[in-house]
């Protein structure tokens, strides 16, 4: 089964660390990601830059409007996504519990909705990546 793991990072946790400590943390994450990759569980993923570097699109009065942000109230923000292949939800939980990233912020594990991918293929004849 396919799962999408949303990794939330608490920016305060990062601010407390020295650059060396952040480097060491990243190394641990990479080592575990590599392990997941080699065992066929890591299907894809991407780390995100902090939200202050992004913009939000929305429609106001029929026009697309662009704003800075999103400005989140909490210090916690989406830091990355990981596409995981696991036998079932409990297996996904086991795999992600060992991920060093969980120490810096919570993970949300959501089953992929493969129906949408199927529908996309039906309508376009194209395979949606990662589905």
């Amino acid at each position: 089964m396919r799962f999408i793991c949303l990794g939330y990072a608490d920016t305060e946790n990062f601010e407390k660390l020295s650059p060396e400590a952040v480097g060491a943390f990243m190394d641990k994450c990479f080592a575990y990601d590599k392990e997941l990759f080699e065992s066929g569980h890591f299907v894809g993923g991407q780390a995100l830059m902090f939200a202050e570097h992004g913009v939000s699109l929305s429609v106001k009065g029929g026009e697309v409007s662009v704003t800075d942000g999103p400005f989140v109230e909490t210090k916690e923000q989406l830091g990355g996504i990981l596409i995981l292949e696991a036998r079932d939800l409990n297996h996904a939980i086991t795999l992600m519990s060992k991920h060093p990233g969980v120490k810096m912020g919570r993970f949300e594990i959501r089953p992929a909705n493969l129906e949408v991918g199927k529908l996309f293929k039906e309508k376009t004849g194209m395979e949606m990546p990662w589905s």
Binding site: M1, R87, D88, L89, N90, H91, I93, P111
Partner: peptide
């Protein structure tokens, strides 16, 4: 059985079953 199969058998969510197992 997978977590999802158990959940469907008991008409509950996979999340509920997963927590029970954990």
């Amino acid at each position: 059985l997978t977590t999802e199969e158990i959940a469907s058998a008991f008409l509950t969510s996979a999340g509920t079953i997963a927590q029970r197992i954990v």
